[in-house]
């Protein structure tokens, strides 16, 4: 979820940066791999903060505005010191899938995943934890959690966290 009202862009606090670091370290990457000009949208009485990477050419205009709804490259949001990645971040991180571990699904798995269902048996490559989920063409289709539910029988599943179907279900 993102902010519903306008706000002002400010720098990230130490605890915000820590939350973001905790997230990227799970994936085995650095913050600099995903953003160079981090800002958060501060909203009066907001319950969370949207986090953006602001293209340098927008800076002067953004700083001149009293209140903005959204801007730049949306990374995700921070709530209670935890970072929750957005769908747009998938594209940036999926470029690194050769170096980090992403989960890859076959066509049937892709369909299940995009319907927001747990995927079993249709997994081409697997890694435990929060991961970028790719389809057979190496295109990112969402965030999911790889889990081994039976180590003896090696039964693995992928639980959807946020998939591209969100654009239809909640995107507006």
């Amino acid at each position: 979820m993102q902010a519903e009202k306008g706000g002002k862009l400010v720098n990230l606090s130490k605890s915000d940066l820590k939350a973001l670091e905790n997230f990227v370290s799970q994936l085995g990457i650095n913050i600099s791999s995903i953003a160079t000009n981090l800002k958060k949208l501060e909203i009066e009485n907001g319950k969370y903060n949207d986090i953006f990477d602001i293209p340098i050419q927008l800076e002067i205009i953004v700083n001149s505005l009293e209140s903005i709804y959204t801007t730049g490259f949306y990374l995700g949001y921070i709530k209670n010191n935890k970072f929750y990645p957005g769908l747009t971040l998938l594209r940036r991180i999926s470029r690194l899938c050769n170096e980090i571990n992403c989960i890859k699904l076959n066509k049937k798995g892709e369909k299940q995943f995009l319907y927001g269902k747990i995927v079993k048996n249709n997994i081409i490559s697997f890694k435990e934890g929060l991961r970028v989920i790719l389809n057979e063409n190496d295109e990112p289709i969402g965030w999911g959690i790889g889990k081994v539910i039976n180590r003896k029988k090696e039964i693995k599943i992928v639980e959807p966290v946020k998939d591209l179907g969100w654009y239809l279900r909640r995107g507006g």
Binding site: Q2, V62, T88
Partner: peptide, 18 residues
């Protein structure tokens, strides 16, 4: 819908004002 469409289509060099 405006925000969602611009994000879905991969763009970032914009500011949305309500």
């Amino acid at each position: 819908a405006l925000r969602s469409n611009l994000q879905r289509m991969g763009f970032s060099s914009y500011i949305i004002l309500e």
